[in-house]
């Protein structure tokens, strides 16, 4: 039988710096992978951390890593050509088929933009496959904005609301929480419109409340959960919420299911 715990070697082909502490590492990977899935990324010196897939290329995956904790800190000392141990991909991820032909609203907070970046990118690239695409992305400050170039590109094909919690220097983005922009979103068909919400727990809770107030249906809202995951394969127990294991049943949940899960 397969030993899921033994990692494989992946090479860093490109490093994209977003902020002082957030980088995207483009890693070699051959195989099926979906946005919203994650890899267990390890460095022998420190151990493993679950990192969600922020982009999928030809023979590569993008892993956007925030320099927090000692695990992810070490990775920043690795550069192009260096190698990392990976396991995965794990988790269910997003299925873009769920959103095709619909009005799509994506609400992301901070690094929560990583797991949905693939979804946004897909529909921004394949504009004919969605009725409309709206992204509300919130960051702490202008210095924390991720995927700045992507956002600039998406703006040509989607409605993008970029907001920061507090103003620091010149910026053309809004100031405030993502939730305050939700009531102004124009939706034509409330029964069909879909929303994806990813971010810190409180941000997700209030965003979903806003979307429900707006008139979206519970079953048309998806959320993605971040939990501690040591194994990625439903064994270690750290990510369990209620009867669900985030690593194998999630991290993406339809809201009617996700709302029943209590930490």
């Amino acid at each position: 039988m397969r030993n899921e715990y033994i990692p494989f070697i992946s090479e860093i082909t490109e490093v994209i710096k977003h902020t002082d502490i957030e980088y995207t590492f483009r890693m070699t990977y051959e195989g099926d992978v979906r946005p919203g899935q994650f890899f267990e990324v390890s460095l022998p010196k420190y151990g493993e951390a679950p990192i969600s897939v922020s982009g999928i290329g030809d023979g590569t995956v993008d892993l956007t890593i925030r320099k927090v904790g000692h695990v992810t800190g070490e990775i920043f000392e690795n550069y192009v050509g260096d190698k990392l141990f990976l396991r995965g991909p794990y988790g269910n991820g997003f299925d873009v088929d769920d959103y095709k032909g619909k009005e799509i609203l994506v609400v992301a907070g901070g690094t929560g933009l990583s797991p949905v970046r693939g979804v946004v990118d897909y529909f921004a690239t394949h504009q004919s496959e969605a009725k409309s695409l709206t992204l509300i992305a919130g960051f702490k400050s202008p210095n924390d904005i991720l995927f700045f170039e992507d956002i600039a590109r998406w703006k040509q094909h989607a409605q993008v609301i970029l907001t920061v919690d507090c103003a620091e220097g010149d910026t053309d983005c809004h100031i405030g929480l993502v939730t305050q922009f939700i009531p102004d979103i124009k939706i034509e068909n409330m029964d069909e419109a879909v929303a994806v919400v990813v971010g810190p727990p409180i941000m997700m809770r209030f965003s979903v409340m806003g979307l429900l107030d707006l008139g979206l249906k519970e079953e048309n809202i998806w959320i993605s959960q971040e939990r501690k995951m040591c194994c990625g394969i439903g064994k270690c127990g750290h990510c369990k919420i209620g009867e669900s294991y985030v690593c194998i049943d999630g991290p993406v949940y339809r809201y009617p299911e996700g709302k029943l899960l209590i930490d």
Binding site: A49, R66, V68, G69, V71, T72, T111, P200, P201, E226, R227, K228, H238, D263
Partner: peptide, 11 residues
């Protein structure tokens, strides 16, 4: 037991 990379924890 539940600490996540960003410093959050549950329960």
């Amino acid at each position: 037991f539940t600490d996540v990379a960003g410093g959050g924890s549950y329960r």
